[in-house]
Computed example of a mutant assay.
Amino acid sequence: MMVKIAASILACDLARLADEVKRVEEHIDMVHFDVMDGHFVPNISFGLPVLKALRKETSLPISVHLMITNPEDYVDRFVEEGADMVAVHYETTPHLHRIVHRIKDLGAKAFVALNPHTPVFLLSEIITDVDGVLVMSVNPGFSGQRFIARSLEKIRSLKKMIRDLGLETEIMVDGGVNEENASILIKNGATILVMGYGIFKNENYVELVRSIKQERGESAG
């Protein structure tokens, strides 16, 4: 499976959002849109009006990461405003199966996100229903944090679960992804890398993306 790059607009110049996305869209696979409510995570970002505006400016898929409480109250509107993928945190809803299938019924891909402290085995009853898993390799809330090393073990465990069940579930990794760890992430099973600073704050982002896409994932576990 060819690795995909998701550019996180949390790291771009938001005053020039459309221009920033157009500048990089030739070299990325999707735009990553982090929604924070100041409750589930200690930060507030952007929401539906910004997504609606962004959807008009790019034809790339948009992955929406809902770092919010009560996500079931908002998934319909995020898909309506242009989300192609929606990631909901395992930790935020007692009705994960219901919300996953609601996202899929709306025509978007459903991902479940895991905080660093949440173990992979908790996905055993939902893994066959989702299109992908978003592994948070930093504590969610702020861009530019350092990668948590134990995330590699989590990615390996997740890859083994997916392989043992004969699935093709995507593994998205978000947090501290850079040129130093991209290769090992891919080799351990990551199929989508979320990068913010590495794309929008890097003069050599084109070469970085090219080198990452030359990597080939290997079976983990």
Rank of each mutant, 00 (worst) to 15 (best):
S59A: 13
V112P: 10
A182T: 11
F111P: 00
M36T: 03
F46I: 05
G107V: 06
K22M: 02
I99G: 00
N43E: 08
L10I: 07
G189R: 15
I44Q: 00
K109D: 10
H39P: 01
G166D: 07
K4T: 04
G38C: 04
M172T: 06
T69G: 07
D105F: 05
N181A: 00
R77C: 06
A87P: 06
C12F: 02
L114N: 04
A220K: 02
T169M: 10
P61D: 05
V86F: 07
P49I: 00
A11V: 06
P116K: 02
E91M: 11
V120T: 12
D84C: 11
R216N: 13
M195Q: 07
Q145S: 14
D34G: 03
L106P: 05
I155A: 11
H89N: 11
H97L: 10
R16G: 04
A7D: 03
F78Q: 02
H32D: 09
K52E: 15
R163P: 02
G166M: 06
N204E: 14
V206W: 02
V64I: 09
A87K: 11
M30C: 04
M30I: 05
G175S: 01
I192K: 03
I28H: 04
Y90R: 04
T58S: 15
L208Q: 08
M136K: 05
V206S: 05
D84H: 09
T92N: 11
V86P: 05
I126E: 00
A7T: 00
S59G: 08
V112Q: 13
T191K: 08
A87M: 15
A7L: 09
K187L: 14
F78Y: 06
P49Q: 15
R156W: 08
G132C: 08
